[in-house]
Amino acid sequence: MRKSDLITNISDKTGIAKVDVLVSLETMLKEIKESLAKGENIYIRGFGSFITKKRAAKIGRNIKKNVAVEIPEHYIPAFKPSKEFISEVKEMHAKVNK
């Protein structure tokens, strides 16, 4: 499913105009990005958590030049689904695969 499909589905189910759904979705995604960039985690009960994970510094290798390269410590965004979300996905896949 693409973002446009998601917007269409939400619009069809709620009766809200696609433009309004698009603005809401874009605003939500922007807020998530900005919060994670500031180091703030986002917790959505029943869905999951958007968090930042710390990656330790390590030595990598530039294969073309055969040189060791130091990769500094950095943070990456991550999503951790809630237990409810995981169980719903498992149940749906179990029903589909029967």
Rank of each mutant, 00 (worst) to 15 (best):
R2F: 08
S4C: 05
S4W: 07
L6W: 15
T8S: 12
T8G: 03
T8L: 09
N9I: 10
I10V: 10
I10C: 09
D12P: 04
K13E: 15
I16V: 09
I16P: 07
A17N: 12
A17L: 09
A17D: 15
K18M: 00
K18G: 03
V19F: 08
D20C: 01
D20K: 08
V23N: 14
V23C: 11
V23T: 11
V23L: 11
S24K: 03
S24M: 11
E26I: 00
E26P: 09
T27A: 11
T27H: 13
T27Q: 03
T27C: 13
K30P: 03
K30S: 11
E31F: 11
E31V: 11
K33H: 08
E34A: 14
A37Y: 03
E40D: 12
I42G: 02
Y43F: 13
Y43R: 00
I44F: 13
R45A: 00
G46Q: 06
G46D: 07
F47K: 01
G48T: 02
S49I: 01
I51D: 07
I51C: 11
I51P: 08
I51Q: 12
K53A: 08
K53S: 04
K54D: 15
A56T: 07
A56V: 00
A56F: 07
A56E: 15
K58P: 05
I59C: 03
N62H: 08
N62P: 14
K64G: 12
N66K: 15
A68L: 08
V69T: 00
E73I: 06
Y75F: 15
Y75S: 10
F79W: 09
F79M: 05
K80E: 07
I86Y: 04
I86C: 05
S87G: 02
V89S: 10
M92F: 15
M92L: 15
H93M: 14
